[in-house]
């Protein structure tokens, strides 16, 4: 078998095992949280009536022992059933299918922007070390790292939408246009698939500000890391050897320098994208983005346990996928990893 294929299979099996671990952890943590879902969901008068309380607990399976609850939960999961949300009174799976794509679109755009700009800025800063552009990028990345996302989101909303009226306001598209027929759940992609340029333009316009706000921290982080990774590789013997061979500068940069520098960059990027996901909660709240962050916040405050577990599972799986991608990329880039 090709060594890369064997490497891939091993990593995927490990990821499945981890996914099972995630279900256990989300379930246990959710049930450990101090707070009674009965109190959060029933009104004052109903709470006073033990019969109603008992009936509500039985209805939601809360009267059974914890291990039984977990087995029922796991059994449901295997069949694609995440339980009923106590708030929306709809299956959690249906809720997630509605909200997750919106967040994926926002986070995906932010990840794309931060990779392109972060790595690009970092390379420029390293190649132009100690010159004006390097200093300017250092200031920019420091701002990106130190400014809190929620504050930046408010500021961007106020300046670009309210004051300058450059960007559209909240939501994913203009209400007047309506949504594109859902295929992937990503508005920009669905609009393109349907050939609706007007919706695409509106969706892209709505995406720009929140995605940039969300990306700024990661851009700053990646700029710093890429700069130091590239500088370190530039000092390596093999780069000097490549120069001694008379290779063109572009070849040296892409084939020799970036390839090695990518290993630490990917490590940091994987971690940063995880924290970028938690940033979506705040950004979604401020830009009224109908994503999973808002849904998570609402279900957490109402102790809607099935919904909370559903969100936990989705976030956990997204982390797993990011880690899997990072691991596979290590193997693709570095033969020493895949030939082990």
């Amino acid at each position: 078998m090709h060594p890369l294929a064997r490497f891939l299979i091993r990593r995927i099996l490990l990821a499945v095992l981890m996914a099972w671990g995630i279900t256990l952890v989300t379930f246990v943590l959710t049930n450990l949280v101090p707070g009674d879902p009965v109190a959060a969901n029933l009104g004052q008068r109903a709470l006073g009536d033990p019969a109603i309380v008992a009936q509500w607990r039985a209805e939601h399976g809360l009267d059974k022992p914890l291990w039984q609850q977990y087995l029922i939960h796991l059994q449901g999961l295997v069949q694609g059933d995440l339980g009923m949300s106590q708030q929306s009174h709809r299956p959690v799976g249906q809720d997630l299918a509605e909200f997750v794509p919106a967040t994926l679109e926002l986070a995906g755009a932010a990840i794309l922007v931060s990779l392109v700009l972060g790595v690009g800025f970092g390379v420029v800063a390293a190649l132009r070390r100690d010159r004006l552009s390097d200093h300017a990028l250092r200031v920019l990345s420091l701002i990106g790292i130190s400014v809190p996302t929620f504050w930046l989101a408010l500021l961007a909303f106020y300046v670009f939408f309210y004051r300058l009226q450059l960007t559209p306001g909240s939501g994913r598209v203009d209400v007047a246009l309506g949504l594109a027929p859902p295929v992937t759940g990503l508005q920009t992609v669905d609009a393109l698939l349907a050939g609706r340029w007007d919706i695409f333009a509106s969706a892209a316009g709505h995406l720009v500000t929140p995605a940039l706000v969300l990306a700024l921290y990661t851009i700053g982080l990646l700029t710093r890391f890429t700069r130091s990774a590239v500088l370190e590789v530039l000092g390596q013997d093999y780069v000097r050897a490549a120069r001694a061979k008379g290779l063109p500068g572009r070849t040296i940069l892409f084939r020799y320098v970036l390839r090695s520098a990518l290993v630490p960059i990917i490590t940091v990027a994987g971690l940063a994208f995880g924290s970028l996901l938690s940033g979506t909660v705040l950004v979604e709240a401020i830009f009224a983005w109908p994503g999973v962050g808002q849904y998570a916040y609402k279900s957490a405050t109402t102790l809607d346990l099935p919904a909370v577990m559903g969100v936990g599972l989705v976030v956990g799986i997204v982390y797993l996928v990011i880690n899997l991608i990072v691991d596979v990329l290590y193997g693709v880039i570095d033969p020493r990893v895949r030939l082990q």
Binding site: D237, Y238, K245, G246, L247, R255, R259, S260, P335
Partner: peptide, 20 residues
């Protein structure tokens, strides 16, 4: 460089690119 004048470096563990 490389065409008319070539160079061999001290440590072959670092002068060859490990990923190529």
């Amino acid at each position: 460089r490389g065409g008319e004048v070539a160079m061999v470096f001290q440590d072959p563990a670092t002068s060859l690119h490990p990923m190529l």
